[in-house]
Nucleic acid binder design. Structure first.
Lengths: 337, 337
DNA sequence: GGACGGGTTGTTAGCGTTCACAGTCGGGGC
DNA sequence: GCCCCGACTGTGAACGCTAACAACCCGTCC
């Protein structure tokens, strides 16, 4: 119990005096240095306990030049995807013994990314994970001078930095092939915003699958990930008699599409089949439950920390590129043509 | 441009030499000390620019004993509510010139909260925001020795700490009164997990409104916030002929309820009216679009930072208690009995 | 018996900043 | 002409820790 009546928190010297050793010995005990007599060690430990001493990590960081803090830069952590990724990152980082400092950007442009990076670097983070799903962010990352080891999540071809991502192209392909295998003549697509690498990858997968099957790719309808934009795309789609299958770039937009179809009396999956992307917790309970492509955001977060920590602790290595496969989740929003 | 060929980053002394002044003068310039001749100031500024000097915040924190970092403890930031709150906190904190360090707990028990608090305190945060929606967390907070100023979000009656929260009771009342005003005999309730203060508040509001109208309160069905638990509650509800109005404690569960009703052929709002809580971005596009109670998570986050910063910068003040009102959002999942 | 060496401990010197205290300089009041 | 005061600047000492080195003890070896 704090016998420190003076309000000052105990420091190493106090512990040293209490234990009758030098502060350096206290330091050695704290850092598990091998050469400390075990009797001395217990005396120090007792003193620490008695005084309620806690090591000052700021002072430690000043001399070691390592803060054991990792920075995370993300965009709109209100969305399920980024939120889940950041959650995975945080869990993994803490498990690896690192603190996590976060910057959530409202808009992701070059200046924003640079500021965030500077900001974190100033704070003394040992490494940074940038969740950079937009092309602009990835580009910014590629040609920004990086003060500390950095890894990108969904970062595309980003120059020097390591990248961990979900195979979006494969996801788009899975969705489209599923629809095609059901006998649909072609598959329409409601895409995400064009600046997003994920959106782009899904479009590419969709296009590739169509091409491979020798089908014409209709013009994709562009959304912005929001249910509303899906709803609007859905209204357009509902008015076209030849639409029988739609691959929507995320589940939220798919919800909007579903809603528009319901309003227009277009039955899913009887008249139109719909496939989403992400597998948010809600999609199983949409009407009808949504067939979708699951992304393992947690795994992405964990991998990004693994890569970063490896870089931090194993010295400078060459950049890595890690891809997490998406998985197809069958539910009931699709049916034979 | 880094004229520092030796890899060492420039420090204050380097700038001082470059500008021909003492390191202390550089410090004064950096801290906007008034007594610096403007000619000197520009010379220092030029040197800073030339060397690409950036102040070492760790060293600064060591002597000032302020890190300008705030800690955030939250529970499952994958959920929309916590995620939005944390987002609001982060934005507000950064605007106020603070870094944000995050700990996301998997389970919130006394030990977990204590560890998180210690962890952040060790790191040297100046203050902490605990998003503590569970009773257990609030209790832990109440009798834990707090090293630094702390504010709770949704923290109930938590002892000494200031609390910012949404008026859950009022929200429950709004939902219930709306349903009653539509002529429903009584209102059923699908609640959140009993340990959650928010769940409890909503139950209280629901009960109060029923009581005030002289109606019998049916036994609430307990969920766990997940769509699945809503779905299960919905199946029970669907089998009861006398149910005409349901207040569901969050939108995700409401989705599950809606789904169960659809499956069972129970039409909403024709046969049963449903009201949710939260107003997540999706709820406008449910089938039917969900009437709900909106919580302004962003405002809660902002307020919590305001309170905390006030405490940090204005010295120790008495604890505050700030309540954000919920707002009723009319859509089409409710109708006259 | 003295040199050697490993285990153990203490001493000193930073890390890069701010704080407290001294200086220096020049102008105004007597 | 002298003193005082305010504006400006410099010097030294923290802050609490770790790194590097020095010192000591004691057993072993030649």
């Amino acid at each position: 119990m704090g016998s420190t009546l003076g309000r000052r928190l105990p420091v190493m010297a106090d512990v040293a005096k209490e234990a009758g050793v030098s502060h350096q010995t206290v330091s050695r005990v704290l850092n598990d240095h091998p050469n400390v007599r075990s009797e001395t060690r217990t005396r120090v430990l007792q003193a620490i306990d008695k005084l309620g001493y806690r090591r000052n990590l700021v002072a430690r960081a000043l001399v070691t030049k390592h803060s054991r803090t990792l920075g995370v830069v993300s965009f709109d952590t209100t969305l399920y995807g980024p939120a889940s990724t950041v959650y995975g990152i945080e869990q993994a980082a803490r498990a690896a013994g690192y603190f996590v400092s976060i910057v959530s950007l409202k808009s992701i442009d070059r200046a924003g990314v640079r500021d965030a990076l500077d900001y974190l670097t100033d704070q003394g983070v040992d490494g940074i994970v940038v969740v950079a799903p937009q092309r602009s962010a990835a580009r910014a990352l590629a040609d920004l001078p990086l003060g500390v080891p950095t890894v990108a999540v969904e970062g595309g071809e980003a120059g020097e930095v390591s990248v961990v991502s979900v195979d979006q192209v494969e996801g788009g392909r899975l969705a489209t092939e599923h629809l095609l295998s059901l006998g649909h003549e072609t598959v329409w697509h409601v895409s995400g915003p064009s600046d997003w690498l994920e959106a782009e990858g899904r479009v590419a997968g969709w296009r590739a699958a169509l091409e491979q099957a020798g089908r014409e790719a209709p013009r994709p309808l562009a959304g912005d990930w929001s249910p509303r934009s899906g709803y609007e795309a859905g209204r357009s789609l509902a008015s076209m008699r030849n639409v029988t299958a739609v691959f929507v770039a995320n589940d939220q937009m798919a919800l909007g599409v579903l809603r528009a179809f319901t309003e227009q009396g277009v039955r899913v999956p009887e008249r139109v089949s719909v496939v989403g992307f992400d597998d948010i917790p809600e999609s199983e309970f949409f009407s009808p439950p949504l067939t979708t492509i699951r992304q393992d955001f947690g795994a992405v977060g964990r991998h990004s920390i693994e890569v970063l920590v490896r870089q931090l602790e194993g010295g400078p290595q060459e950049r890595e590129r890690l891809v997490v496969p998406p998985v197809f989740v069958a539910r009931v929003s699709t049916a034979r043509a």
